[in-house]
């Protein structure tokens, strides 16, 4: 949960990028790192394998600055998408405030998206939490590739709650900030 520290006047919010392996979660966070003013962000930390696949998580702290006397920080995490790493994926969800679900638009990855969403629900349930109660936005990534599922179909299967969603080509920075902004705002509103 967002940790509001009344004495140091800080609000920390944890946003987790979730989704199937090789879907572009790390690409999102790397793009954010490259574009956010260095004064407003910390170090990008990646715990990955030798082949650059996320092993544990990526972490990027972003500072919103001072709002009404409170310093607001967003801590962005990615999880390892590969099915094999579920134990570490589950750990990162601890205390999550908001989720950006990065879906892979390619036809051959369609089932992986659904499986990852189901896995998200299962992992949250181990912390006695329900996905429907957590702010979330969806990014349909890799829209530049030729062999992709239509947005209508993706929406039908991945977004029945009609949450904020957008098309993206994360590698070019298209559609990267929009889902982050949407979920961050929702997290702030939930602080009430």
């Amino acid at each position: 949960m967002s940790l509001i520290n009344y004495s140091s006047k800080e609000i920390n919010c944890k946003i987790v990028y979730y989704g199937p392996g090789l879907g572009g979660k790390t690409t999102n966070i790397k793009y954010i790192y490259s574009k956010v003013n260095p004064g407003s962000r910390g170090k990008l930390m990646s715990l990955d394998t030798e082949l650059d696949r996320t092993l544990f998580f990526d972490f990027l702290p972003v500072n919103l600055g001072r709002v009404k006397g409170f310093y607001v920080h967003f801590h962005l995490y990615t999880v390892p998408g590969q099915v094999y790493y579920n134990a570490s994926r589950k750990l990162i969800l601890k205390g999550v405030d908001g989720i950006v679900f990065v879906a892979d638009s390619q036809i051959e990855r369609f089932e992986d998206n659904i499986e990852s969403l189901e896995n998200l629900k299962e992992n949250l349930s181990e912390y006695s939490r329900i996905l429907e109660e957590i702010p979330m936005s969806i990014q349909y990534n890799k829209r530049d590739l030729p062999n992709i599922v239509s947005i209508a179909e993706l929406e039908e299967d991945l977004n029945p709650r009609v949450l904020f969603s957008c098309e993206a080509v994360a590698v070019d920075g298209i559609g990267v900030f929009e889902p982050l902004k949407a979920v961050s705002k929702e997290v702030l509103r939930k602080l009430k």
Partner: peptide, 22 residues
């Protein structure tokens, strides 16, 4: 219940978000 944020807080924080993630 410990109230921390009000409508003004959210409005200001949202505007900061918009300029940070441009």
């Amino acid at each position: 219940y410990v109230g921390t944020v009000d409508q003004d807080f959210i409005k200001e924080a949202e505007s900061e978000l918009d300029s940070l993630f441009e």
